[in-house]
Computed example of a mutant assay.
Amino acid sequence: MSRYLYLNGIKAFEAAARLGSFAAAATELNVTSSAISRMVRLLEERLSTALFKREANRLTLTPAGQAYLAGLTPLFESLVRLSEHVASFGHRRVLTVGVGPTFAIRWLIPRLADFRTVAPDVEVRFATGGIAGPFAEDWTCGIKLAPGGEAGFISERLFEADLTPVCTPALARQVTSVADLREATLLRVAHAPQDWPTWLAAAGRPDLVARGPVFEVYGQALQAAADGVGVALGLRPYIDDDIHAGRLVAPLALTVSKGMSWYLMFREHRRDEPAFKLFRDWLHARAVKAAD
């Protein structure tokens, strides 16, 4: 183990820096002030740099100490969350799903009540910061749109991501052919710039160019379409519920694969967790139903 990873000293430093004194840190950690001072001194020796300016009745962080505290704070917060997550195993079944906000809002959350009929004692937690970033250690699993599986994870395909234009029933009466899209407002998604070119090329009209408003995520574009702003290129399964309810319609029959699929991702050591097994089986059953 690295000589820098002196955990007692790190803990003593973080408490003293956060609370502003060795005495306050000693009270929190249930040791003496001299013990806190000694541990911090040993940590400084290992780091070969001073973390505090020690003055009479005053404790001030050095630039190195400020940088160290800034880096330690999120690590300690993450450790607290991880500890809470592990502790929860002892008294209830918890499932943390890493998922993008649009998938959560437009597909997964509307079906959560159905999952609760299967597993009423499982507490589901959503981490919706987006699974495009690193897979957090405290996530049970993740649901991700990707061209294929990823190394280091079990990746199970749920359903294909298909693209098709959608709009309100009123606007659909003006869009009866692909050529009609030339006069329509075509809503775009910033992180998916190839969606419209891919669909238009498959429709035999690569000459048409989408020039409508650009939205950050699919959910915003689909909401704009439901409000009559224009025609969005809907991505399944985001559009399933709106089409079923009649809020949106697909005026043109052509559906084109985005070349990606939705995957359930998890690490091998999660496979046999009871809450996850229930969720995994339920999710695959719902994916089969969505594909019908």
Rank of each mutant, 00 (worst) to 15 (best):
T96K: 12
W139N: 15
A16M: 03
L75M: 12
E268M: 15
L108P: 02
A203E: 07
A232M: 08
F153S: 04
E183K: 11
T62A: 01
A203Y: 01
A210F: 09
L163I: 12
M260A: 15
E45M: 14
A136V: 14
H85P: 00
A87G: 11
L29R: 07
A87M: 12
E84D: 09
A24M: 05
F276G: 01
A172G: 09
S37H: 11
F215N: 05
E273V: 13
L278C: 08
L19P: 00
G100S: 15
T117D: 12
R247W: 08
F89S: 15
S257T: 13
P237Q: 11
M39G: 00
D242E: 14
A287K: 02
G65P: 03
A146N: 07
P147F: 00
A203N: 01
S34Q: 12
S78C: 05
D227Y: 03
I243W: 03
V229D: 00
R92L: 13
L171G: 04
A56E: 14
L19Q: 08
S88R: 12
Y263Q: 02
M260Y: 10
F126L: 15
A23E: 11
A203W: 01
S177W: 04
S155W: 01
D121T: 14
P274V: 12
Q194V: 08
P193L: 08
D272L: 10
A151M: 03
R182Q: 13
R81S: 14
A15N: 03
R211G: 15
F279R: 04
L47V: 08
A70N: 09
P101V: 11
E156L: 09
W282D: 07
G149K: 02
V97G: 01
R92I: 02
G20N: 10
V231T: 06
A113L: 13
V214C: 07
V94K: 11
L200P: 03
R93P: 00
L112T: 06
R93Y: 09
A87R: 13
I10C: 00
T140P: 06
A16Y: 00
A253R: 11
F153Y: 14
A225M: 10
P213F: 13
L145W: 02
E45A: 15
L181I: 11
L200C: 11
F76D: 01
T96W: 05
S78P: 02
G133K: 02
S37Q: 11
R286W: 06
S177R: 13
I143Q: 03
A87W: 09
A275W: 03
A203Q: 04
P101A: 09
T140R: 05
A17D: 04
S177Q: 12
H284F: 15
V80Q: 10
Y263F: 15
P169G: 08
A12M: 05
T198I: 11
L254H: 05
F76E: 00
V231E: 04
P134E: 13
S155D: 07
I154E: 15
V86K: 09
